[in-house]
């Protein structure tokens, strides 16, 4: 169970989840240079949207084959609505404001979303159980669950359709143009507001997919799940080069693997015996973030975005 291939697989799975969330950070950032701090909470609302479909809408005993797609739809609707609503009512009025204003708004939004769920979603102040796909498959060196298969397929489908969308569709090209130069893009007749909304919506959609995978994999969701996942996904986005969609996924995978390996093996290093295990995994993830910012601030696939001091 604790073999290296197994650890790598675990890291890859965790990382794809980070990557899916990181897409939301990176797309929004690429277009409006805004770090949407509340994105972690959008992920969380996606999970609760999906849970609502399962627990309150579908009849008991619905087969998972039918339930999962419907949960995806429910989660996506909630997450996209929250994301687009945040853009429309919280961020858009501040687009010309000093930099600090949208950041503080994002903090407020993040707190408010957490608290809304905690206060008003039945039973959400503690972890709520989520239908999980626990059937395991032994593939020789590694053992994976159904939820893992779902996650991997979802990540691949999402990434390839996003790549196709950005590359081939009219809207995708308009997005690239807006990312390059919003003013010129607007002069060329691109409705930049629409593009920004689409970026937020795609972020929400991917976050919802990640949220459903999270629920299926871990079997419970809570109102705070977005905070850490969001932070790590942001780390992944920075790691890969913020603004770059492939970078986000790559960063996610690298972060996931690094984190898994660190928690599995770091206690084998003399002098660090007590710093291994799951409880220190987050610490190592952030150390990686700081290390990356120090050594390669533009990220693995990014261009230079650093200010010259």
């Amino acid at each position: 169970m604790n073999t290296l291939p197994q650890q790598l697989a675990n890291g890859l799975l965790l990382g794809s989840m980070y990557g899916l969330i990181a897409i939301g950070y990176t797309m929004v950032y690429g277009i409006v240079q805004l770090i949407n701090f509340a994105h972690g909470e959008i992920f969380m609302t996606g999970a609760f949207g999906a849970l609502t479909v399962y627990a309150y809408i579908l009849p008991h005993g619905t087969s998972m084959w039918a339930a999962v797609p419907l949960m995806l739809i429910g989660g996506a609707i909630v997450a996209v609505l929250v994301a687009v609503g945040a853009e429309r009512f919280a961020y858009r009025p501040l687009r010309q404001a000093p930099r600090l204003a949208p950041l503080i708004t994002a903090i407020g939004l993040s707190l408010a979303l957490q608290e809304v769920v905690r206060n008003f979603y039945p039973g959400a102040d503690k972890a709520r159980s989520f239908p999980s796909l626990d059937t395991t498959h032994d593939l020789g060196a590694v053992t994976i669950k159904d939820a893992d298969i779902f996650l991997i397929i979802a990540a691949i489908v999402c990434m390839s359709s996003l790549a196709y969308f950005v590359r081939k569709s009219r809207t995708g090209r308009a997005m690239q143009a807006t990312a390059q130069d919003p003013d010129t893009a607007q002069l060329m007749g691109i409705d930049t507001n629409r593009i920004i909304v689409i970026a937020f919506a795609i972020g929400g959609l991917f976050a919802a997919v990640a949220a459903v995978s999270y629920g299926l994999k871990y079997g419970n969701v809570d109102y705070r799940m977005g905070f850490l996942m969001g932070l790590k996904a942001f780390t992944a986005a920075v790691l890969g080069g913020i603004g770059n969609i492939y970078g986000a996924m790559l960063g996610g995978v690298v972060l996931g693997i690094a984190e898994t390996l660190a928690s599995a093996y770091i206690n084998n290093i003399p002098g660090m015996q007590q710093l291994g295990g799951q409880s220190w995994a987050n610490v190592w993830a952030f150390c990686l973030l700081i290390l990356v910012l120090l050594l390669r601030p533009q990220g693995l696939l990014g261009e230079r975005v650093a200010d010259r001091a």
Binding site: E303, R304, V305
Partner: peptide, 25 residues
């Protein structure tokens, strides 16, 4: 001019434009 415009928007006074979607390169 694009470079300069980018440099002077204040966000990133750097030779490159702020990084773009993975596509462009």
């Amino acid at each position: 001019t694009a470079d300069v415009a980018a440099a002077e928007t204040g966000a990133a006074p750097q030779s490159s434009t702020t990084s773009t979607k993975g596509e462009a390169q």
